[in-house]
Design a protein around this nucleic acid. Structure first.
Lengths: 210, 210
DNA sequence: TCATGTGAAACGCTTCACAGCT
DNA sequence: AGCTGTGAAGCGTTTCACATGA
């Protein structure tokens, strides 16, 4: 299989969501042009992205909406459940725990960890908060696929190490710090502070120039 | 001024944070090599990024840490306060409101909006929750620079429109949806669901291949 | 005629490699 | 000798443009 860029995957994710909307609107076929318009992309981009995984369209007509949805669902691997462990039961962790978009897409938080002894033992919905020391056995028992890091920057790397040690192969990091993981472990970052600083940069630049 | 890529800005943000650490460790000079190593980048990348904005280094020695910090601070525009309006007083909004990394970098939430009449009138710390209908006047009174969208996907575009209408020129969007804003308004997105789907894709692909 | 799928060109970012300064 | 700053090469992504098929 050829190398597929992260951006293509991001766009597929967005096509997937938009296609559901088109399906709700009762559309049967959709052209790359219509999809691109709503996705904020170009028609050529849409066709190129899809062509990485096969030929799904019909020349002269476009793509069958229902068919394309199921193809993308399968490509992204969201046609199965994923079991997620969340580390960090602070406000961010709490927000993530109850984030509906996750459950809607079959990501289920099956374990929560926090090193604060006051939090350990409490329950969020039906999930008990455990201490990170027990991560290894719990991750195995509950068959965790994905780890989410929602702790302060200075402990994020040690949490990542513990996750790797527990056998987790995919990590989503919300801490404001670059993490290092071994080959074979996939790491994605969500960096809110960085995006704010990008805004700050653009506004500063515009102010200086005008 | 030449065009500087978003990625360069993201890396500057990360250099900035790392340089503070080096400063705390008592380092006076730092080479592109050392900085790159900790940032997970290459020395050439570090030098190229910095060279977009001037020549800050000394050949044979490296960069003066304190000097470089203040240069990057000024480039990113984080040497001043930014006034932020948050729309959406749900769990995510609450997490963002109390996210220390924001305040630490001089981003101050000076207004919170929510259309839920049960929330309007309540206070978060010293900020009262207001109804989005009053956004225009409040944004002007409180001199808001940046808008943060933390509402469900289906109302995000209308919130963005209201922000634009109120004169906000920079928006950070946490909703799982592509937003459209006019030229002159800067939009950045933080898309957590998309990152999870990228993990799902990589894990699915690896499982299929092996 | 209409829209896909795809070589090939264009573009932008990263890396190389070295001149030049300390 | 050591490290920066940068032209130029390399590489991956996007866009163009058109052959192909419905």
């Amino acid at each position: 299989m050829q190398k597929v860029s992260d951006w293509t995957i991001h766009r597929l994710s967005s096509y997937h969501r938009l296609l559901s909307e088109f399906a709700n609107e009762g559309k049967e076929y959709i052209s790359s042009h219509e999809l691109a318009q709503r996705a904020g992309a170009t028609p050529a981009q849409v066709r190129r992205d899809l062509s990485c995984f096969g030929t799904f369209g019909t020349k002269g007509k476009g793509y069958l909406v229902a068919d394309l949805i199921s193809k993308i669902t399968s490509i992204l691997g969201i046609d199965r459940d994923w079991r997620v462990a969340l580390v960090g039961a602070g406000r961010l962790g709490s927000a993530l725990f109850s984030y509906k978009e996750f459950r809607k897409r079959n990501f289920h938080i099956v374990a929560v960890f926090d090193s604060d002894r006051h939090k350990v033992g409490k329950h969020w919905a039906d999930v008990q908060i455990d201490h990170p020391d027990d991560m290894k056995s719990i991750v195995r028992q509950r068959k965790v696929d994905i780890g989410v890091i929602a702790v302060p920057a200075d402990t994020a790397q040690s949490v990542a190490n513990a996750m790797v040690d527990a056998g987790i192969k995919a990590i989503l990091n919300f801490a404001h710090r670059k993490l290092f993981v071994p080959d074979g472990v996939t790491l994605r970052n969500v960096n809110m502070a960085m995006e704010l600083e990008t805004l700050s940069y653009v506004m500063t630049k515009n102010r200086t120039r005008r």
